[in-house]
């Protein structure tokens, strides 16, 4: 389905947040710790990733801790 991941429109075969993260983690070599995900402006806690279903046009933010001051 069509999603917007980190501001970029894309096509992903993922029914829920956990499945989407698995795809992105593989493509971007992401660690599993220090990561957070928001769906349409709301944080989805990690335990809820599998049960949080995605819909056409959803906006997903995947963020991580980086260097900062």
């Amino acid at each position: 389905m069509r999603l917007i991941v980190n501001g970029e429109p894309c096509e992903r075969d993922a029914r829920d947040v956990a499945a989407l993260f698995a795809i992105e983690a593989e493509a971007r070599a992401l660690p599993t710790e220090g990561i957070a995900i928001a769906l349409n402006g709301r944080v989805v806690r990690k335990p809820s990733w599998p049960e949080t279903l995605l819909s056409e046009g959803d906006r997903i933010e995947i963020v991580r801790a980086m260097q900062g001051g």
């Binding site: 980190n6 501001g7 970029e8 992105e24 971007r28 070599a29 992401l30 660690p31 710790e33 220090g34 990561i35 957070a36 933010e61 995947i62 963020v63 991580r64 801790a65 980086m66 260097q67 900062g68 001051g69």
Partner: peptide, 19 residues
């Protein structure tokens, strides 16, 4: 120690500040 929160990039970052 302070850190920032940023979108993961498409290119991926080699360094992992968190780790």
């Amino acid at each position: 120690v302070t850190v920032s929160i940023r979108r993961v990039s498409l290119q991926g970052h080699g360094s992992d500040t968190f780790q």
